[in-house]
Design a protein around this nucleic acid. Structure first.
Lengths: 90, 90
DNA sequence: TCGATAATTAGATAATATTCTAAATATCAA
DNA sequence: TTGATATTTAGAATATTATCTAATTATCGA
């Protein structure tokens, strides 16, 4: 959970997640959306993977990344907890 | 929005928010929940304030901190966007 | 097997963040 | 006004993070 929040604190990584919302993408396709180097993107992908926000699967030469909604839902649960039970426990 | 995600990436700051969920607290009361120094807590509070996750108000010698749910709701909206519209736009 | 393509790993540097102690500011109460 | 309490600001040390280039690994097609 802490890893997820850490991962989401970087704007590049949030943008990657937004890209993956629409469809699965290879590492190269993801990198094409940014101006920073491929190794840097690879590093960001690795952090997202460690936080289990994304998962990867090799397909031939490519590695395809996809969203893992489970952890995103868990993170959203944290926010719901903040909003839903303000005051002395409604 | 970016400030909010940055602010939430630190476990101490998330814990502060959870404390404020139950009731408003003075800076000193908040600091009492942690082992780190008061200036460090003050720094964390300042970051939370800049992200508009909390607001403060002086009451005599104390400064009372309270939660600002608006930004938390906005952040939750980001998560909802991730979960709600997976694939080519449901 | 070789060359090309896709992606990651290694190692270094620069920028940010966290934390501390010491000092400053603000308020209250006598 | 002075002393005590609450909190923040200043400045520095340390740790973490983001980024780069160069090198490595893995796969494909001829």
């Amino acid at each position: 959970m802490n890893d997820a929040f850490k991962a989401l604190s970087d704007p590049t990584r949030r943008q990657i997640i937004q890209l993956l919302k629409d469809r699965d993408l290879t590492a190269g396709e993801i990198a094409d959306h940014f101006t920073i180097s491929k190794p840097s993107i690879s590093h960001h992908l690795n952090l997202l993977k460690q936080a289990r926000l994304v998962q990867d699967e090799r397909q031939g030469q490519n590695i395809v990344y996809s969203l893992n909604l489970t952890v995103i839902q868990e993170a959203m649960g944290w926010f719901l907890g903040m909003i839903g039970t303000k005051g002395k426990g409604e």
